[in-house]
Design a protein around this nucleic acid. Structure first.
Length: 806
RNA sequence: GGGCGCGUAGCUCAGUGGGAGAGCACUACGUUGACAUCGUAGGGGUCGCAAGUUCAAUCCUUGCCGCGCCCACCA
């Protein structure tokens, strides 16, 4: 006998362990089933499960469970990501608390600390994922820095280098002065800042008293100026082109050049050029052979290339002093308020400094071309489609990808330098030494590149590195490419685009057929969840309070394609109630002897209500399958919800009551069998969304011993189950009953008072006791209801007249 | 500056060229033997504004207003 209410906490863990123990999550390389593959985005080892994870992983698990039931060999490949900068920051913070630093520890000891820390806390998120019911193949769990994946990273790096698609270059990078590393363009966030713009007067060489005015939002960078640019057609400055200005405070001669970069409409029309500290100035400088003067150190403090008075100052202090000194000299023409966009490091939160350094770059433009074509030709489909435009836009304008990072935690760049700086990029140090010996004609000492690679470099290989590449494994042959990648739009560029590039280049095929892009989870008012706002919903708390299935169903039901998801606890509570409703419907069936009847043929039922519910179930099942095939989770959830609550519970069970308690033995047996059959099928359909409660009910309601819903086949509803006649009849009865209830409420008929119902015409015997248990009679004819001049649903000749209350 | 998306019931949002919907909230009634984590009934919307296409527009087109996000080296 089922308990009175469903208690998730008492069943979830038990079923999860049983699933794992029975290897229900395992993909079988030797299976003759068609594979179905989803690469789980590797979770950050430093992380714990937040509601965004719960969302994306629920969507993935639904697909995996659905296709597993549909007879596919499902592989959901799990793992974790070393998350270079993020993890290193966490460990450094811990060191700081201990009063030491990574520099003091040294590279080797520091890395040991990170590995230790990864060992103790790295599994947290994957453990929490199990609470979500995630049916990933844990036996295949990988880590981006495990041996195999590290090998793949080196191999990719070496091959791309030898193909000329990875190279070392000196250019301006996004330098994070706090983390002391370069970061990629994607790791920079622009924020609008209310700043100022200074109009500075630079004296013209050889003409005392004459000046040229330049405008700048960063006056401190003037210490690194090496030129002034004006537009070639700008009459105001035409005659100054080719002459020189004198840089105040420094005394450097600045060549005045004509360049299209200078916009006569902007500022004063003349631009100071600081080639070493501004991306566009860098280009201007290159065009005119201007000197690159680096004035910052790695902390973004002024270095020895500026006059002594400014050395060692921070950017902020330098600005104040430069402005003060120029003001004192009368060289500040004016200052205006100005809105500007400033680049911030997305990890450190400090202003990024364009800084001239040597870094490793991936030729993304070359790799992007076939990745663009793959989407254009439909070999990979992006859902919803609107994201294709975003993908194309970014890929078409892609810049070289800076992949080297000046941190320690990560894959060290497999490059070695000879005594003269000659570079050897090889899989191993030995190979590099051999190459060097060959080159120099004798053995030499090599120095390894200190940098590590961008975390996303290894993530980009995930779809094939996890399957054993570069070995030609059976897994690789069978599970590449994957069927779908499910992820948020926030990592479309970071990850999806790069997997496309690497996958196509090294596997000669796209890494996945579909990309399903979803929104982000926000709070109920649409704000981003953050600790500081205190609006965080913890998925584990929600699971504890309402059960895993309630959370999963909420997430699935609330997805709006191409939109962010606003999650509120009341919503989860509502779907917890849905679980209870389902549970109690099952309890009713159990109490009324509804057990699966061997050989039961639903389409051959005699009772209209039975034919009807079977038909409605078939429609619902179809809708669910169709919806899930197209990633329309909310439609699947809605179809299930409506069928379960509004049809099965609200009407079918009520219709069934008089039959189950009546004297017609045959009708009762048929109804018992139907109810049991429908419920069992429904559990199948619900399972991908609500795995625990369905498994529990399936077990308790006498599925065959040992039979697990998770591996049960998905029932494909046959055409013979669909019965439009039964559907029309019951729909009509439902409308009549609703009408009578409405009239009754309007007339204020007391609950227990009889409401005389008079029927005229053929088939009047078909409606009796419509109130209360609204017992349904075998054959329902066409009836109309009239009361106080109202016309109710009418079909044919039968009339139902409702009298005054007695 | 470019691109994308959104404005439908108090709130969160589905939805469709021809009847305006769901959940929550609200009101009234109800201790019916599955369920009060429930049931029945009910109130509430000029579907952002304007014009156009159409026999017909919440839905298609254009413009406007408001909101959000992404991308971008303009001083």
């Amino acid at each position: 006998m089922l308990d009175k209410t469903y208690r998730p906490s008492e069943v979830e863990n038990r079923h999860y362990l049983a699933w794992e123990a029975s290897h229900a999550f395992r993909a079988e390389v030797t299976s003759n089933k068609r594979p179905y593959v989803i690469m789980m985005p590797p979770a950050n080892v430093t992380g714990s499960l937040h509601v965004g994870h719960a969302f994306t992983f629920t969507l993935q698990d639904i697909l995996i469970r659905f296709h597993r039931m549909r007879g596919r060999d499902a592989l959901w490949q799990p793992g974790t990501d070393h998350a270079g900068i993020a993890t290193q920051m966490v460990v450094e913070r811990r060191l700081e608390a201990e009063g030491t630093t990574r520099d003091r520890l040294g590279r080797e000891a520091f890395l040991k600390r990170v590995w230790d820390w990864k060992g103790q806390s790295g599994g947290t998120i994957l453990r929490q994922l199990r609470r979500l019911g995630a049916s990933a193949d844990w036996s295949r769990e990988r880590f981006t820095m495990d041996e195999g994946l590290s090998l793949a990273v080196r191999k990719v790096f070496v091959e791309l280098y030898k193909e000329g698609l990875i190279y070392r270059d000196k250019r301006l990078v996004n330098w994070d002065p706090k983390l002391h590393t370069a970061i990629s363009d994607l790791e920079v966030q622009s924020r609008e800042i209310k700043g100022k713009i200074w109009y500075l007067k630079y004296p013209i060489e050889g003409e005392s008293g004459r000046t040229i005015t330049v405008a700048t939002t960063r006056p401190e960078t003037m210490l690194g100026d090496s030129g002034v640019a004006v537009h070639p057609d700008d009459r105001r400055y035409k005659e100054l082109v080719g002459r020189h200005a004198l840089l105040p405070l420094v005394g450097r001669r600045l060549k005045i050049v004509a360049d299209l970069h200078a916009d006569p409409e902007e500022g004063s029309g003349a631009v100071k050029i600081t080639p070493a500290h501004d991306v566009s100035d860098f280009e201007v400088g290159r065009r005119h052979g201007l000197e690159l003067i680096n004035i910052f150190d790695r902390d973004a403090r002024l270095n020895d290339n500026v006059p002594p008075a400014y050395r060692g100052l921070s950017r902020e202090a330098a600005r104040a002093k430069v402005v003060a000194d120029l003001t004192a000299l009368g060289l500040v023409e004016r200052v205006e308020d100005h809105l500007l966009m400033l680049p911030y490091g997305d990890r450190s939160g400090v202003v990024i400094e364009p800084w001239l350094t040597d870094q490793w770059y991936v030729d993304a433009k070359t790799l992007a071309a076939p990745a663009i074509e793959a989407v254009r030709s439909g070999r990979t489909r992006i859902v919803p489609r609107q994201w294709e435009a975003v993908y194309f836009e970014w890929m078409n304008n892609i810049q070289p990808w800076c992949v080297s990072r000046q941190i320690w935690w990560g894959h060290q760049v497999p490059a070695w330098y000879g005594p003269d700086g000659k570079t050897f990029v090889e899989m191993t140090e030995d190979a590099a030494k051999r190459a060097a010996a060959l080159h120099y004609g004798h053995e030499v000492e090599l120095k390894r590149d200190e940098d590590v690679l961008d975390t996303w470099f290894s993530s980009a290989l995930w779809p094939f590195s996890t399957l054993g590449w570069p070995e030609k494994t059976a897994e690789l042959a069978r599970y590449y490419p994957g069927d779908v990648l499910v992820t948020g739009f926030d990592i479309l560029f970071f990850w999806v685009a790069r997997m496309m590039m690497m996958g196509i280049h090294f596997m000669d095929d796209v890494p996945f057929r579909d990309v399903y892009i979803h929104g982000l989870v926000r709070d109920e008012r649409g704000h981003k969840m953050s600790k500081s706002k205190g609006n965080i919903l913890d998925p584990v708390d929600l699971i504890d309070s309402y059960g895993c299935d309630a959370l999963r169903f909420t997430l699935a039901a609330t997805v709006a394609e191409g939109r962010d998801l606003k999650l509120s606890e009341s919503r989860v509570e509502g779907y917890r109630n849905f679980c209870t409703k389902l549970w109690n419907a099952a309890r009713f069936c159990e109490m009324n002897g509804c057990r699966p009847a061997p050989g039961f043929a639903p389409a051959a039922a005699k009772e209209t209500i039975n034919l009807w519910i079977v038909s409605e179930l078939a429609e619902a099942g179809r809708k669910v399958a169709l919806a899930l095939e197209e990633y329309k989770y909310n439609e699947a959830a809605q179809a299930l919800y409506r069928f379960t609550w509004n049809l099965f519970c609200d009407w079918y069970i009520e219709f069934a009551k008089p039959i189950l308690m009546g004297t017609d033995e045959a009708a009762r047996r048929e109804t018992q069998a139907t109810a049991a059959w429908v419920l069992d099928q429904l559990l199948h359909y619900l399972h991908p969304l609500m795995p625990f409660i369905t498994e529990e009910l399936h077990e308790q309601l006498g599925g065959r011993p040992g039979a697990r819903l998770i591996t049960a086949p998905w029932p494909a509803p046959g055409d013979e189950l669909v019965n439009p006649e039964a559907r029309d009849e019951i729909n009509w009865v439902v409308r009549v009953i609703a009408e009578i209830r409405s009239v009754r409420a309007e007339m204020n008929v007391p609950p227990k008072a009889e409401l005389p119902v008079e029927m005229r015409g053929a088939g009047q015997e078909t409606l009796k006791r419509l109130e209360r248990n609204h017992g349904l009679i075998e054959r329902l004819a066409q009836v109309s209801v009239k009361q106080r001049g109202r016309t109710a649903p009418a079909k044919g000749s039968v009339q139902v007249l409702i009298g005054e209350a007695t």
